[in-house]
């Protein structure tokens, strides 16, 4: 019994951290996905395309660069799981959803920026991903991932 208590004290903090971060992390993720769906539905009328050219019958009056970016990171629990996954290999679902969330958020921010500035469409949308190194563990740890969405916003003559 004393051994069990000692073990509990030794690993209890770690386990508690895993459990707490699991619940908070999942809650944040679910809420983010819900908000994203609503915002995406609200902005479906705003054209946002990856091709360079403008259809010849569009009368463009103004053009400028718009960007949207976001830095995200995984919660402690999922990072722990991803570490385990690294041993056996295969799909790391938690990173897939994280990057999906981040890309959609960056695109939404770019769209919002273009919309508030009075533009009516965005062409040549590009996405860039870069990893931010953390100062922890001699720069080995990942502080987060930055997703940048950018494109050329255009105003059309009506």
């Amino acid at each position: 019994m004393p051994e069990l208590i000692q073990l509990g004290i030794q690993y209890g903090g770690f386990l508690l951290l895993l459990v707490v971060t699991y619940f908070i992390g999942s809650m944040i993720e679910r809420r983010h996905f819900r908000k994203l769906r609503l915002r995406e539905e609200a902005s479906t009328h705003f054209p946002c395309v990856t091709f360079r050219s403008v259809p010849s019958d569009w009368q463009v009056t103004e053009a400028n660069l718009v960007t949207g970016s976001v830095v995200v990171s995984l919660d402690y629990f999922k990072r722990f799981l991803a570490g385990l996954r690294g041993i056996v290999g295969g799909r790391i679902r938690s990173y897939e959803t994280l990057l999906d969330r981040a890309r959609r958020e960056a695109i939404m921010r770019m769209k919002d920026a273009a919309h508030t500035a009075g533009y009516s469409a965005i062409i040549n949308v590009r996405l860039e991903t870069s990893r931010l190194a953390s100062t922890a563990r001699n720069g080995e740890g990942t502080a987060g991932v930055e997703i940048l969405a950018f494109g050329t916003a255009i105003k059309l003559a009506r």
Binding site: I28, E29, Y76, A143
Partner: peptide, 9 residues
Amino acid sequence: LKNLVGGEL
């Protein structure tokens, strides 16, 4: 701190 719970930094 935010890195523990994940989400946007």
